[in-house]
Structure formats: structure tokens, C-alpha cells
Design a protein around this nucleic acid. Structure first.
Length: 565
RNA sequence: UGGGGGAUCGUCUAGUGGUAGGACGUCAGACUCUGGAUCUGACUACCUAGGUUCGAAUCCUAGUCCCCCAGCCA
């Protein structure tokens, strides 16, 4: 019972946490998920959320939700609310532990005053450009600012006037006095406060100078008593600065920063900048476009929180950066939905079928299993009659090798109904396209009937014409044509790899009548096709489905192999 | 040519001096009223070169390659 039975039970972060517990360094662990409210959460954040909340859960600790809102020019309440909704939807609970870095502005300011008093921070009046010059380069040390040795009194005076709003943006900045010659650039007197005459989404116009991440983050962690501050790899060389701030400011405790590799996924982009660009330039319909890896997008696509959590658990946590295949994410949503999604019949590209020997006007209600994986899901009834629709791709006048579906002279089973035989076709005179298929049925072969056991090469789905419901269906493919969207010719950017076929909206689809009451968010398996969910834009008059993920399709592979030669 | 990290099947990930394992994927087969699911089998890896050791993915030495850092972003 105490052994974690998961195949990916351990990771190095858990190990470190466990050690700190065993050595008695901490009695209870406290982690935090610290998003900046300047965008929507994506599946990369989900990895971090699962890690932070997961570790807290596992070791009976707690995980805080903290908004890292130190830059008023980029942050908005809209994001704050969306982020909370997304974390909750993913299945995590922060109880009453929701905080904002902006809650600590006053205390942060006092810590800064203290640093100035101790000669560990100073007000610099170099311009941003000058400061960059003074910083030096990767290989050359920086130079000390001429303002570096201002007196404590002058620094205190200037800093309080920065707070009072006496100076315009960019004229002064509070800097730590560390070491301009440090080989670690983060230690070359980093900026802690910058002047920004901008309204903050929570503190309004109360402040006109704001702390930077490097200053606010370690102290916010310490104020909250965070024991393990888990972040991504790019902050690894900020750790000495993190530790410097905590030590020199005299913070109440010293959280341990641990870095792990962020998630990358094939065939998509994860950076906030690129996601924002896709939305703003209209390459997608919005932050909840089902083609995006945002949590809002995945939710609309039909992904379940359970599948995303299982995915995050199985990809593991390590320090080497890599790219996880989209196929793995798809595996987890299939696995989840296979267990829980009710099956239903839907025809995406209809082809009319007439059963010549079936009595006109007759309708039979046939019993269909809702979910073969779940006996408790029960059964439903589907109407069968003389005129039906089948999938266009389930009929071929000239079948390729290994094609098992309907073809002239051949029999197939109509799922839950009868075995039918194709006896003729009607073609469009001008185009030669098959517009109607004529069949005969064998009354003995009805499911459960005397000849029901007769073997045929395949079973296809269908929908009875008279009772069919119309629907729109959005078929999604990867947003990019290349596993690595950044792989582009010289002079182009990742948008050159946008997949022109990432969305195909089908409007003439028909679905079985049991779907009449389907409401947004409901998920189904359209038999033999894939998992679909009802889009929020769907209405009783116009059902709209999104394809979450297609079923694995071995026939498609055979066809592809044949085409590739 | 500074500093910080990292290299294990195609992909992700275990391993902490003692038979390199799992998952996805791929291929083949069985089964099937979903060409789904399920089941079987196969596939493929320790960055390189030395060294220590009875024994090295693991320890040592020297290389190679990849990622991150020069915001008053986070």
C-alpha cells in the first residue's frame, strides 16, 4: 500500500522532497504553482500543476496557487479567472491558499528598504541602454555604474520618491549590489524595482514602481513558507540569485528551488508568445480553439482532465529537455474515452442506400449496446428502415486489395441490424459518381436472429434516413505539418509550417436520433470513426461536434502503405 | 573563447557498481457484429575514447554534441 505502484513512480523531484522529509528538514511540505496572469494555461502548465499539486498530495502537504503579478502592463483579471477555472477543471484544489505576489507589495518594499539600509541595494539612474552596456557580455565582465556608491541616505530618499511617483518611467531602478564581474550574468547587480506608472489589476494606481520576478519570487515563496519551489530549467542559473535574495533580505525561511525540464510536444507550439500570435493573427479562432494545446482548447476538443493527468504522470519529470510525441497524448485520451464514451452511429459523408426488398414504410427499433467496455452502460434502440445512409468510404465500386467493405455483389453486416448485399448502383449521369447504392437484406441475419452468426468480412455503421438528425462535424488534424514547427527554411518562421488542413468542417453529417438531447461537452464514440464531443456552439436545432481524436485505423495504414508504394 | 545544465530504444522514462526495464510507437499474428478494444510475439538504446574494477549506464580522466543566460519579461 505504501509502495507507489505506478510505472513511473519516482522522479528526482519527489526524491529530493522525500529526503528533506526523512532528514527532518521539513515536517510538512509546501509547494506552489505560480502562473503569471498574462495568458491562458496550456498543457505544459498542466505538467507543472500535476507535479506541484501531486507532490503536495502525495506527501500530505499543501500546494498554493499564487499569481505572479508583478508586471501590471501585461496582466489582467480575465487571465486570473481563467487560470483558476483551468486548475480546478484539471482536478486540483488549493483550499484557501490562493495568493498574489501583489499581496506582498508592501512587505517587499520594506525588505527592499532594509537591503538599501544594509548597503546591499542601490538606486541606479542609468538608462536601460546604458545599463546593458555596463552589464558586459557573456565573456567580458561588466562595469560598475557610476551611481553604485550613492549613500544609504540618498538611496533611501530616491527609492521613496520612486514609490511616491516623482520620477517618470525608466529614469531610475533599484538594483542589488552584488558583483558586476560575476561570470553569472544574473548576479551583475540585477534590477529589483522598476518604475511603471501603470494601473495594476489588483492594486490599481497605488504603486508606480513594481518588483521584478527575481526579487519578488523568492520572497513570495519565503513569505508563504514554501519548502520546495519547483520551476523550469531556464531558471537554473537564477538560483544563486534566488538564494542571495532570501539570505540577504532576511526572509523567514529558505525555500529550495528545484528545476525540471518543461514539456514540449510534437506538432504544436507551447510558448506563450507563439500561442498569442496564433490567436491574434487569426490562425486559430481563439484561445479555446480545439487545435491549440491550451487547456481551454483541449477541453473544447473533448479531452478529459483524467486523460491529461494520466499523460502528465506518465511523461515523467527529469532535467533533460526533449519532445514528447503527440501520439502519447492521443493514447491517453483514447484509453480514457474507450472506457467511458457511449457509442453511437453517425455518418459523416453520407451515401444513400436503399434496401430493395425491405418493406416500404416499415421501421424496426433495433437494440444497440452503448458501450461494449462497460456493461453497466446498458443499451439503446436505433431505428432501421428501407432507406439509410452509410459512409461514402464504406462503399467502393472497384475495391482495392484488402478492402473488406461494401462493394458490388458483396455482403457486409449493418451494425446491430442485417447482413445486406450490394445489388446495384445509381450514378450521376454527368459525373459518374455513385449517388445511390441498392442492396437486398437477409431477414434471417438480424442481430440475435437465426442466421446472425453468419460471418461476413466487415460490419459498417449506418443511420436510418427518416429519423436522422443533421449535424456539423469539425475534423481536426495537427496544427502544424512538421513535428518541429520551428524547422523552417532560412528567413521563414514557424507559421510557414501551419497545416492548411488542420480544420475541416463537414456540414452535411447525419447522426442517429438518440443524440437529440446531446448537450455541450458530452462525449461520444462515433463507431468506427473516433471520439467526438458536442461543441459549446451546438444547439438543439444544429448539433455541432468536434472530433477529439480518431480511432486507431489499421485500414488507413494499409492504404497509406499502398500509396507510398 | 564566460557561466549554468543535459546526453539510455524512433519518442518519453527507469536504473544510484551485479541479467539495461516500462510506456508510447512500429511490424507480425490471434480474436472481434467497431479494420476499435483486447491478447500474443518481434523491434530497437547506455554520446565517444581511455582508465579503475572480478564486474561500469552508474566511479575517474579527456573529448564531442545539445539546451539555457547579456529584459527595467517571467
Amino acid at each position: 500500500m505504501t509502495e507507489p505502484e505506478s510505472s513511473t513512480a519516482g522522479n528526482f523531484v519527489r526524491e529530493l522532497v522525500e529526503q528533506d522529509l526523512q532528514t527532518g528538514k521539513h515536517g510538512r511540505i509546501v509547494t506552489r504553482f505560480p502562473p503569471e496572469p498574462n495568458g491562458y494555461l496550456h498543457i505544459g502548465h498542466a505538467k507543472s500543476i500535476c507535479l506541484n499539486f501531486g507532490i503536495a498530495q502525495e506527501f500530505h502537504g499543501i500546494c498554493h496557487l499564487r499569481f505572479d503579478d508583478t508586471n501590471p502592463t501585461k496582466e489582467e483579471v480575465e487571465y486570473v479567472e481563467a487560470i483558476q477555472a483551468d486548475v480546478r477543471w484539471l482536478g486540483f484544489d488549493w483550499a484557501d491558499k490562493m495568493f498574489y505576489a501583489s499581496d506582498y507589495f508592501e512587505r517587499l518594499y520594506q525588505y527592499a528598504v532594509q537591503l538599501i539600509t544594509q548597503g546591499k541595494a542601490y538606486v541606479d539612474s542609468l538608462s536601460a541602454d546604458e545599463m546593458r552596456t555596463y552589464r558586459g557580455t557573456l565573456t567580458e565582465p561588466g562595469k560598475e555604474s557610476p551611481y553604485r556608491n550613492r549613500s544609504v541616505e540618498e538611496n533611501l530618499n530616491l527609492f521613496s520618491r520612486m514609490k511616491a511617483g516623482e520620477f517618470p518611467d525608466g529614469t531610475h531602478v533599484l538594483r542589488a549590489k552584488i558583483d558586476m564581474a560575476s561570470p553569472n550574468i544574473n548576479l551583475r547587480d540585477p534590477a529589483f524595482y522598476r518604475i511603471r506608472h501603470a494601473a495594476h489589476h489588483r492594486t490599481g494606481t497605488q504603486w508606480c514602481c513594481y518588483p521584478t520576478y527575481d526579487y519578488a519570487h523568492p520572497l513570495s515563496d519565503a513569505i508563504e513558507g514554501i519548502t520546495h519551489s519547483i520551476c523550469t530549467l531556464e531558471f537554473e542559473d537564477h538560483r544563486p540569485l534566488y538564494d542571495w535574495v532570501v539570505e540577504h533580505a532576511g526572509a523567514p525561511c529558505h525555500p529550495r528551488q528545484i528545476e525540471f525540464a518543461r514539456l514540449n510536444l510534437t506538432f504544436t507550439v507551447m510558448s506563450k508568445r507563439k500561442l498569442l500570435e496564433l490567436v491574434e493573427k487569426g490562425h486559430v479562432s481563439g484561445w479555446d480553439d480545439p487545435r491549440l494545446p491550451t487547456l481551454k482548447g483541449l477541453r473544447r476538443r473533448g479531452y478529459t482532465p483524467e486523460a491529461i493527468r494520466a499523460f502528465c504522470e506518465h511523461i515523467g519529470v527529469a532535467k533533460r529537455d526533449g519532445v514528447v510525441e503527440m501520439a502519447l497524448l492521443e493514447h491517453f485520451i483514447r484509453e480514457d474515452l474507450n472506457r467511458r464514451a457511449p457509442r453511437v452511429m453517425a455518418v459523416l459523408r453520407p451515401l444513400k442506400v436503399i434496401i430493395d426488398n425491405y418493406p416500404e414504410g416499415q421501421v424496426e427499433e433495433l437494440e444497440a449496446v452503448n458501450n461494449p467496455e462497460d456493461p453497466t452502460a446498458g443499451t439503446r434502440t436505433v431505428p432501421f428502415s428501407r432507406i439509410l445512409y452509410i459512409e461514402q468510404e464504406d462503399f467502393r465500386e472497384v475495391p482495392p486489395p484488402k478492402y473488406f467493405r461494401l462493394t458490388p455483389g458483396r455482403e457486409v453486416r449493418l451494425r446491430y441490424a442485417y447482413i445486406v448485399k450490394c445489388v446495384g448502383v445509381v450514378k450521376d449521369e454527368r459525373t459518374g459518381e455513385v449517388v445511390e447504392v441498392h442492396c437486398t437484406y437477409d431477414p434471417e441475419t438480424r442481430s440475435g436472429g437465426p442466421q446472425a452468426q453468419r460471418k461476413v468480412k466487415s460490419t459498417i455503421h449506418w443511420v436510418s434516413a427518416a429519423q436522422a438528425l443533421p449535424a456539423d462535424v469539425c475534423l481536426y488534424e495537427a496544427l502544424f505539418v512538421k513535428a518541429n514547427p520551428g524547422d523552417v527554411p532560412e528567413g521563414q518562421d514557424y507559421t510557414a509550417n501551419l497545416n492548411p488542413h488542420s480544420l475541416e468542417r463537414l456540414t452535411g453529417c447525419i447522426v442517429e436520433p438518440s443524440l437529440a438531447g446531446a448537450s455541450p461537452g458530452n462525449r461520444y464514440q462515433f463507431e468506427r470513426q473516433g471520439y467526438f464531443c458536442v461543441d459549446p456552439d451546438s444547439s438543439a436545432g444544429r448539433l455541432v461536434f468536434n472530433r477529439t481524436v480518431p480511432l486507431r485505423d489499421s485500414w488507413a495504414k494499409i492504404e497509406k502503405a499502398r500509396q507510398d508504394g
